[in-house]
Design a binder for these strands. Sequence first.
RNA 1: CGGGGUGUGGCGCAGUUGGUAGCGCGCCGCGUUUGGGACGCGGAGGUCGUCCGUUCAAGUCGGAUCACCCCGACCA
Length: 577
Amino acid sequence: MYAIILIMRRTQLFTKTLRQAPADETAENAKLLIRAGFVHKEMAGVYAYLPLGLRVIEKIKTIVREEMNAIGGQELQMTALQPRELFEQTNRWDDAVVDNWFKTELKNGARLGLGLTHEEPIVDILIPYIDSYRDLPLYAYQIGTKFRNELRAKSGILRGREFLMKDMYSFARNQTEHDELYEKAAAAYVRVYDRLGIGDRTFRAKADGGYFTENYSDEYQTLSPIGEDTLFHVPGTDKWFNQEVALSQAPRLENQDGEEKPLENVEGKGIIGVNELAKFLEIPMEQTTKTMLYVADGGEVIAAAVRGGYDINEIKLRKIVGAKNLKLADEATVRKITGAEIGYAGLLNLPPEVRIIVDESCSDRTNFEMGANQTNMHAINVNWGRDLPLPEKFYDIKIARESDLDPETGQVYETKKSVEAGNIFPLESKYSDALDLYYADENGQRHSIIMGCYGIGISRTMGIIAEIFADEKGLVWPDSVAPFQVCLINVGTDENVVKFTTDLYEKLQEKGIEVLWDDRDARPGEKFADADLIGIPHRVVISPKTVERGAVEYKARTLDEITILSPDELLKKLTCI
RNA sequence: CGGGGUGUGGCGCAGUUGGUAGCGCGCCGCGUUUGGGACGCGGAGGUCGUCCGUUCAAGUCGGAUCACCCCGACCA
């Protein structure tokens, strides 16, 4: 697909290295990629790929492409300009549904979207080709540019407004067939990350489906301190969860079996927020209660309560309530329902039509606090059964925290920061049904098509690899994605040295090894520093000393050890990588 | 969207109480150098983000605007 140039002289490469990174970059990946001349920042979150950077991108693409092809993926190229009508059919056009879409218009005023995701277009493309059960199953994928109007771009090429992504879509005749396709793609993802050199720290984690699906999704998360996501892992198992969906059981509280004290209302004017409140009442934060009011699709009001210190997980709450959308109640609603200003809501004396959902973290407490449903008032020494009915059931509606337990195993989670390197979603027949893509079975009966979608961020993955492996000298690329395998360095311009180097350069080319020859008339120190900064995995040095012995000097980027090899030994070594 | 910060040669920075810009790296030339980012000499390169204003005079003061960076974004 991409005719990669095998060998290159450094004097033919237009990029140079910088000693200092631009001051406006803070992410390590961006600093190094700019210093080494791999990328150019065009504006916030928008980067151009220069010759070295493009080579890395193409290496990653090739690995992804090979693995998608291996499971039967068919590559195509969809468009960046997207028609509004297609997305109106699936109710995704509205800015209120998808808020990070770049939109533009034609001269005649017709509204267009700029490629954000391609579920609708792929279905639309397949309509003329999918008629019968004989046409299924299939995988179709593309590698292209996606545009997303992120509120804030950050972390260099990890979170851009314009980025490269592989997106694949699967089409199955039924759920069983879908599940097979889904797991086959998941296995291909494991091979991709292994080949990219990050397999040992990339894990499949359960996550929310976002605006793609009401289902859960699976994310491929690479552990890294720069990550924006927090993973919850059950130690010793392969159970990983994105924080947003991690089930959680709060650690039990001590001293909850004391005598029930009399219920009291305490005035705490303007005291809002559990931290401030706990300090004011001189009670542990765990004895406070955070109650939030939500309004579900149908107008039903939900009062959700968690132990102080926790936050409500709207994803969990939404699923329990069975609502598609859940909105925080506005001021007027809060006032109407609780009779108080925002900040003093509790579960006491709520109107009967309010549905109460209480988190399990509240279940074992005695003499706890909650808002009194009167402005400036907080109720203390509240007790289940006496002051308000013990709920029939306690739920898990909180955002999991460090030191929480996995309810299924009772183990304490370990938490890790990570970057999402890829994701896979079961889509059911949401898009195919909405756009009228069906198939006929053996009896001519019409059936829904079950879809899945599978993304890998190509440019983000480059950023992850850059970030993870870099050391104090610069980038360190794994062999599989390095812009060149070998950096050839001649020390000095002695005729014999140049002749020896030229011969070796040509021999390496014959062997199909990618070489960057630093043929500049520069001092050795500068060449070594550049080779390290650029991060080429194998360094070969030729100097008057080595020529005298008819040998070369070899060093791996990741090791300090230098070995003297004959040209044949070197060729043998490099052919094996 | 809210708060904070920064915009001065390609990159990193300095620029006092307003007087028409300087340093390091990089670049060009010559020479000496050549195993971990050399040294000497001589050069080139900036209408100080943009616009408006104050002033005899603005990189410097005032206002607006744009861009970039960081933090936060209903938390009952």
